Amino acid sequence: MPKQDSNVTLVDEKDEEFDTNYLAYKKGLSGGWAGFALCHGMQDGDAAVFQLIKPTTFKVHIIRAASDDHSEEDE
């Protein structure tokens, strides 16, 4: 990861690009990450795998959390 704040591009599985800001001192994404997550319907429990494809470009693979479709009332 960059040693200073920089722009990072996230590429989804449809090859659409999303610009975000990487904050080096926090070691995290800002300014664009929330929009990416909302656009892709990410929810608590989902995972994202970041594959570095260029120095500041990542392919993002989303792994959905398993959902339990059975309620306790069905038992």
Rank of each mutant, 00 (worst) to 15 (best):
F58C: 06
K27A: 05
V60T: 12
F58S: 03
K59F: 02
T20A: 05
Y25W: 06
P55M: 12
K54P: 00
A66Y: 11
F50D: 08
K54C: 04
T20G: 01
G45H: 03
S67F: 08
D69N: 06
G45S: 11
V8Q: 00
G45R: 07
T20N: 02
S30A: 14
Q43G: 11
I62R: 02
L29Q: 07
A47Y: 11
S6L: 13
M42F: 07
H61Q: 05
D68R: 10
L38P: 01
Y25A: 03
G32R: 02
G28Y: 10
V49P: 03
H40A: 09
D74F: 07
D5I: 07
E16I: 09
S30C: 08
D19C: 14
C39D: 09
Y22R: 02
R64N: 09
I63A: 12
Y22M: 02
G31S: 15
Q51E: 14
K54N: 13
D74S: 13
G41Y: 13
G41N: 04
T9Q: 08
E16V: 04
D74Y: 15
P2R: 15
D5L: 03
L10G: 00
K14I: 09
E16A: 10
S71E: 12
T57R: 15
Q4W: 12
K54R: 05
F18T: 07
A65Q: 07
D69F: 12
T9L: 09
L38K: 14
E17L: 05
M1V: 05
A37W: 01
H40S: 03
H70W: 14
G35P: 01
